[in-house]
Design a protein around this nucleic acid. Structure first.
Length: 287
DNA sequence: CATTTCACCTGGTGGC
DNA sequence: TGCCACCAGGTGAAAT
């Protein structure tokens, strides 16, 4: 379901609701797929920890966690900085995952795999029908904090961006989807940014000119920033932490618009398959 | 090593 | 209505 703008929207919403709260109880479902770290170990490690902050890295949501508090429950939210976190809970939403902050009495959605009861009375829920999402606990006293290999598309500079694609023979669309190059770009924003930059998805990454690459870098950043402002794209059932849909799907120029007229020139949008994924483009506007 | 293909899951849609 | 093929926002292992 979620690419960078959707994950950013969710992370911001969750942060606003649970920052400074504390995890007092953890329930996990019985399906094994969502758990990178065994669920029994994750549950034990999460219980009692305070949530210092929540943020996005690539398509991952990272909860920065403070040490387990002993004795009486703290009633005042922690003022600690994320830098003092000694653990992280890392959530990847896969294709259909949702991370919701609800009240415990709220209706339980099918395919709910995790419920974290908080001291405030709220609850964090992870729901994922297809079970492609992943939940992972990381002990920062034993290893470094989570960081994917891919660069952040919102802040990468021109030279570094160009270097990612140099000498590569694969299609630029496939390269954009490779999370170890850029973190956070998925099928929607790969297609939309290539349209905005006027570049055909099948062009070989290493053959793009310097100016085409710079157009692509700027187009990608603008598309992602615009989508974040609109709360992401709700193609089928994506919702943010409050269950609210995004609006960027209304502004898609090519994604899932096969046969419809190009918003720029009117020619029909084409659908092809690149890197095993549906790919949409305008043959006239993209060269 | 770089690149491509496919399996992993459930659910929705559209054709017959 | 039922059955089936196909499609879906992702990724990582296996094959090439």
């Amino acid at each position: 379901m979620p690419e960078l703008p959707e994950v950013e929207t969710i992370a911001r919403g969750v942060d606003a609701r649970v920052r400074g709260d504390r995890i007092i109880d953890v329930w996990f479902g019985t399906h094994r797929e969502p758990f990178k770290t065994p669920p029994s170990r994750q549950a034990k490690a999460l219980e009692g920890r305070s949530i210092l902050s929540v943020h996005r890295t690539g398509k991952h949501i990272v909860l920065e966690l403070g040490a387990v508090q002993t004795g009486r429950a703290a009633t005042t939210p922690s003022k600690q900085e994320a830098s003092s976190a000694d653990a992280q809970w890392i959530v990847h939403l896969g294709m259909t995952g949702r991370l919701l902050v609800t009240l415990p009495e709220g209706p339980l959605a099918p395919h709910t795999h995790a419920r974290l009861t908080l001291a405030s009375g709220r609850e964090i829920r992870f729901v994922d029908p297809r079970r492609f999402g992943r939940l992972d606990f990381r002990d920062l006293t034993r290893r470094d904090g989570f960081a994917g290999p891919g660069a952040e598309p919102l802040t990468i500079q021109p030279a570094e961006f160009a270097a990612l694609f140099r000498h590569r023979k694969l299609a630029i669309k496939a390269a954009l989807l490779n999370q170890s190059l850029l973190a956070g770009v998925g099928n929607i924003y790969a297609d939309e940014s290539l349209f905005r930059a006027g570049i055909r998805p099948r062009r070989r990454a290493g053959q793009l000119t310097r100016s085409e690459l710079e157009r692509l870098r700027v187009a990608l950043r603008e598309v992602l920033e615009h989508a974040i402002r609109l709360g992401g794209s709700s193609v089928s059932d994506y919702v943010d932490a409050e269950g609210v849909r995004g609006f960027f799907q209304l502004e898609h120029c090519v994604y899932q618009r096969t046969g419809e007229p190009c918003r720029n020139c009117g020619s029909p949008i084409r659908r092809i398959v690149v890197a095993g994924r549906s790919t949409h483009y305008c043959a006239k506007c993209q060269r």
